[in-house]
Design a protein around this nucleic acid. Structure first.
Lengths: 233, 233
DNA sequence: GAGTGGTCTAGACCACCTC
DNA sequence: AGGTGGTCTAGACCACTCT
């Protein structure tokens, strides 16, 4: 049985709860009614209320604990969700044409910070790639990547024609990893490749990717000036 | 009725689905069985399978469409979730002591980009604050903030003793907004305040906050060198 | 038109935590 | 010890979209 009035689905309930928080019916830090009470009030099943409150808890708006109940977050640790697309998609989403050039390929021992971030011994050799991604022919991202050869399937592609990222996605076991953002002045190499002044402020994205057991790759993306990462909360 | 074997809850099912994707039983782009088939296989209710697959879809691992079915994402648009804490919490989480100094306060018409980002007319006066946040006495973030006086409750605090951010959280209707990250060279003012060289690469966070109807505040945070935003995916 | 995911219900048991 | 959220079930209807 659905309520006869306006409120029905879990999205409506989420909206109503958010409204009461905004109107300060339920100020920051305050306890809100139990799921059962809200279910009765709204005329829905408890599972529906649970769905709404769970989403708000994930978003950082509510804090929930068994037995303790649910309260409005006092200091809202906002959770921002970012889309991290493949570079080609990112460029094409801007309506520009994507291309890339493999600038160098080598096999070498990675520098200590890279090795330790991947949890590798200091002697482990890896494949090193430098790639410049272009948007409508203009430098867009300078990508430096370390690949763990131990986890790559046998016939390696020609990375001059196949993007390492997309090849990995298609040929290596699905993986999780972490992402970090920072800012850094352009190194001489980055400045030359991207066509900017040495020391120019660059937006840096660093990603580390793992299988269940072994590291796959560590990437550093140095974005051309003007790059922004944006979130709609 | 729960399955007698190992697989029971939705987290187990999510893990098993992820495993099959990693092992390439279900390679990128492939269709996977329907919820009903998986429910039968695992001996659980369809709602349980739905929960597991929904989480994976939100994470960008699966793509789902009614009637079309569920497929493994071909080009995984990774969804990264970032925590955006209050600055004081961020400093204290590093084990450092937080303090701040109000450097200037004024009432003025914001520059055009700020006004347009907030959707305000070019004549609307706002409150302007410059605050330097310190971690163990060292410059941590230089905050420049525009406040819409029309939506602020009557007795404004002394922003020299009360952090604007925390006062807003406690006294203004709960709000949503958007966040953007970028990199920029330190302006002369930022360089002086943060104690870095002019042009040094700074990590910039910009946040805009709204009530349901009106803009509340626009903040620009210029982080001291070395700042990183990190995500565990 | 028909198949698939999206959601809801009513009830139940459980895990966890505060009291 | 008891209350609260977390989850599961079996069934149902609906919305969307592909064929």
């Amino acid at each position: 049985m659905r309520a006869g009035v306006g409120i029905g689905g879990w999205e409506d309930i989420r909206a109503e709860v958010l409204r009461r928080i905004r109107v300060r019916d339920w100020p920051p830090g305050a306890m809100i009614p139990t799921e059962e009470e809200l279910a009765t009030e709204f005329g829905v099943a408890r599972a529906t209320v649970n769905r709404a409150l769970r989403e708000l808890a994930v978003a950082g708006v509510l804090e929930r604990r068994r037995k303790a109940g649910t309260r409005v977050a006092a200091l809202p640790v906002r959770k921002a969700t970012l889309d991290i697309p493949v570079i080609r998609q990112e460029v094409e989403a801007r309506g520009q044409r994507h291309s890339f050039r493999l600038l160098s390929q080598a096999e070498a021992v990675p520098p200590v910070p890279v090795a330790s971030r991947l949890g590798l011994g200091p002697e482990q050799r890896m494949i090193y790639l430098e790639t410049l991604h272009l948007a409508d022919g203009q430098p867009f991202v300078f990508e430096t990547r370390w690949l763990n050869p131990l986890v790559l399937p046998a016939p390696l592609p020609d990375f001059a024609t196949v993007s390492a990222n997309e090849w990995l996605v298609a040929h290596v076991a699905y993986a999780l990893g972490d992402i970090a953002f920072s800012a850094a002045g352009a190194t001489p190499r980055e400045a030359a490749v991207l066509g900017v002044a040495e020391g120019a402020a660059l937006f840096i994205t660093e990603r580390t990717t793992w299988t269940a057991e072994a590291p796959i790759t560590a990437v550093r993306l140095a974005h051309a000036p003007g790059y922004r990462v944006q979130t709609l909360v």
